[in-house]
């Protein structure tokens, strides 16, 4: 017992997700369903990635919108100016984001706690200012990308698969980090940095590596997202609301756990979509998301996965660590 059913269930889930686009002929709301799934995958990819620095290492970053924008604008520009498909340049965008993450981390990770959070907000605002005034990428007016030449349904399906790959890749990366000595060191940093350092862990290098690594799949998701939007504006990537979602989704699901950001992303994107579907274009979706956060955190202060684990009530299907 034990191991096999969880692998089976997750495998079956993955197969079902892989097969979803094949339902096109039978589903009226095909485009809508796929669009919602694309958004879910995007957030799973991004929050699982964020979790490496924000969850494992305990350094809350509100600046990951920068990597999101970097992915979108880098792949978008390569598409506009050189005609390279964002599907091909997305991994490149991820690597560039890792490089930028290293440089940024060298500076911002000299700080701890609230100072670190504020330095990441500063990073977000500076990038916003930069892109708003950089005409090469359209400035505040934005930048239009060439539309995909495929028929709509096929284009949707390709974005769907690209985002699914990013999501699965990101969760797998988080899982591998969590189970490695690197991940163990990050958990020590999160708990007591001085103790970790005295124990012999090069805490500064660990944190910088975690920050850089956490940028990869955020940029990949940004590249795919930009392609699917076909029109980029700074606010698409760099709003405070998006910066907050990076934090709220993992907190809801359980930051520092592998399954937490996945669960949090599915819940927040799901509740948001459902309330938009029911209440239409009112702002009630925000109320619903707020209520969800309130209720969950009242009863699950460590997030759903974290609190269930603490009470040894975590179903094996959600125990991915």
């Amino acid at each position: 017992m034990g191991r096999t059913p969880r692998g089976l269930v997750l495998g079956a889930l993955l197969l079902a997700l892989l097969a979803t686009p094949l339902s096109a002929p039978f589903l009226d709301s095909y485009n809508y369903v796929l669009q919602v799934m694309i958004v879910m995958f995007m957030w799973i990819a991004m929050t699982s990635s964020w979790n490496i620095i924000g969850g494992f290492a305990g350094y809350t970053s509100l600046g990951h919108g920068v990597f999101f924008a970097l992915g979108g604008y880098l792949s978008g520009s390569l598409f506009v100016y050189l005609g390279l498909s964002p599907f091909l340049t997305a991994p490149l965008a991820g690597l560039v984001a890792v490089g930028v993450g290293l440089l940024v981390g060298l500076i911002t990770l000299r700080t701890r706690g609230p100072s670190f959070i504020i330095s990441t907000i500063a990073l977000l605002l500076m990038t916003n200012l930069l892109i708003n005034n950089w005409q090469f990428v359209g400035g505040a007016n934005g930048m239009s990308l060439p539309l995909p030449t495929l028929p709509l349904a096929a284009a949707k399906a390709s974005f769907y698969y690209a985002m699914l790959v990013a999501a699965v890749g990101s969760v797998y990366l988080a899982y591998r980090v969590k189970r490695s000595k690197f991940g163990l060191g990050l958990r020590a940093v999160a708990e007591d940095e001085t103790k970790a350092e005295v124990a012999g862990i090069n805490t500064r290098m660990y944190k910088i590596a975690a920050f850089a690594l956490s940028a990869f799949f955020v940029a990949v998701a940004g590249a795919v997202w930009a392609y699917s939007l076909a029109y980029l504006r700074p606010v698409t990537f760099l709003s405070i609301a998006i910066a907050a979602d990076f934090v709220l989704m993992p907190i809801l699901g359980g930051r520092g756990t592998v399954a937490g950001p996945v669960l949090g992303s599915v819940l927040i994107v799901g509740v948001n979509e459902l309330s938009v579907a029911y209440f239409g274009g009112t702002a009630l979706n925000l109320v619903a998301t707020g209520a969800l956060l309130l209720v969950v955190l009242l009863f699950f202060p460590q997030g759903i996965v974290g609190t269930l684990r603490q009470h040894r009530r975590l179903p094996r299907i959600l125990d991915w660590d």
Binding site: S180, K181, F182, L184
Partner: peptide, 8 residues
């Protein structure tokens, strides 16, 4: 390389 190995 050793940092990437299994935690325990």
């Amino acid at each position: 390389l050793s940092v990437l190995r299994r935690d325990i």
